[in-house]
């Protein structure tokens, strides 16, 4: 297993949380893992991204500049990073918010109407996790069992209902 994952979108779309969920999944499976957010003014309403490295070997640079898994939650992030995806890599795009389609033939692109599905399924702020479901399905990165364990670790007991909501969102994403 060797994933260099870049997730990008607007602040508030749950970019950092989606990355954190992947990082905790890796922790649950005793993989080497690092999570690095962009920090500073861009977090506050501007574009926001986060690097997650998951590997069987110790992580070198935690900063992902050439992802082999890229998740785009808005148009500016798609425009900025789609050209950086490694050949044979995979890109996952919220096609409700991103109008473009990549013309790259050397990567696999998956377009999911994540924000639309979020509304249809009454899962507010769930687009990030719906798209993550597609990531998990297309890469085979982690099972739902691992995701559940990770969620149980991240979600505070007082907000336990969020675990089922997130798993439902993952399921919707996997089915796309």
């Amino acid at each position: 297993m060797n994933y260099n994952i870049l997730l990008a979108g607007f602040g508030g779309q749950g970019v950092l949380f989606a990355g954190k969920l992947l990082a905790y999944c890796a922790l649950m499976e005793n993989k080497e893992v690092s999570w690095l957010p962009s920090y500073g003014p861009e977090m506050r309403g501007g574009t926001c991204n986060c690097s997650v490295c998951i590997s069987d070997e110790p992580i070198g640079s935690p900063l992902v500049t050439e992802p082999n898994v890229f998740v785009a939650l808005n148009q500016p992030s798609f425009d900025k990073f789609i050209g950086k995806v490694k050949a044979d890599g995979k890109a996952f795009v919220d096609s409700t918010l991103v109008e473009s389609v990549s013309d790259r033939k050397d990567i696999d692109c998956y377009y999911v109407q994540a924000t639309q599905l979020e509304t249809e399924n009454e899962l507010p702020k769930g687009a990030n996790i719906i798209l993550l479901g597609k990531v998990l399905e297309a890469t085979g990165m982690f099972s739902d069992e691992t995701v559940r364990k990770a969620l149980e670790k991240i979600v505070p007991a007082s907000k336990g209902w969020l675990i089922e909501n997130n798993l439902k969102a993952i399921g919707i994403g996997r089915a796309q």
Partner: peptide, 10 residues
């Protein structure tokens, strides 16, 4: 440095 301060690791 900022990278080490901001990153999460096990």
């Amino acid at each position: 440095d900022g990278l080490l301060g901001q990153m999460m690791e096990p």
